[in-house]
Amino acid sequence: MLDSDGLHLRAAFFRCIRTFFYQQGFLEVDTPVRQPVYLPESNIVPLASEQQYLQTSPELCMKRLLAAGNNKIMQICPCFRKEERGRLHQEEFQMLEWYRTGADYHQLMLDCEVLLRFLLDSLLPQQLPGGGAGHQLFPGVTLTASWPRITVAEAFSRYSPIPLVQALQQDRFDEILVERLEPHLGHGVPVFLYDYPAELGSLAKRRRDNPAVAERFELYIDGVELANGFSELTDAGEQRSRFVQEIATIKESTGREPMMPERFLTDLGQLDTAAGIAMGLDRLFMLAINRQHIAEAVTFSPEDFL
């Protein structure tokens, strides 16, 4: 459970993030946490609630709002992912998502840089309760210099014991990412890992000049994955066939059979160019206040109920 200083700091942190997006002209939206459909993604399992599901991300609803003509939207909301529990995981967590029409993933990377610098400048330690040495935000991380960008292919050739192609063939991509790549990412300065193999971004647009990769990136600080953003796939036909594939994979490995998100696909047809990103705010706050475990950065953790 957070102490009073921690609560004030967390409140200021959320307030600053909202202020940033208001100043940038974003519309704050709220969408249902509990829905009859969920995003069919083979590695993310939803928690059921009566006959419906708690959202794993507000992505489907956010993109429907974009398609309806809203150009810059943001949301902070709880998301739920079944059986994700660990140093950096809790089944329930706070997600920040923002979406822009007429933009691509490079714009989102810029947004990340500007947002984190704004946070650092706005949350001055001396203005916070119990301020001073104990409250230096993001200690050891330089946010002001421009952040390096490294492609997934480069990162594999630098840190992986086997080539990227082989890792994908042997279904070892995630294992090598976690054990070999992530420990090197984002020390001293944040880093963007970008251009993921296309098959690993089921809602991301492929690069026109290199269809083998998707215009997708992840932001890392201190080896911690903080945000996942991409240029949105807006071809409803291709999106449907990717969902068909995902649903088949999910059915084969778990027996679950998610429904096709039909209304989403209909609306997606109205959407032109767009980009969107999801950032884990509990993790970002954890790094800001220099904690090692997500449970130390949230108001109540599951341990507080034991």
């Binding site: 994700e84 660990g86 995630d174 294992e175 976690v178 690993l200 971004g201 992840e218 996942n228």
Partner: peptide, 28 residues
């Protein structure tokens, strides 16, 4: 230790001790 890339597979990185021989086993 539980690890999982946001869009990736859950990995359960485990260290175990054989309760008879005392040997260590490290497995994901």
């Amino acid at each position: 230790e539980f690890s999982k890339p946001g869009k990736g597979q859950a990995l359960y990185r485990t260290k175990m001790r054989n309760m008879i021989s005392g040997n260590q086993l490290v497995k994901t």
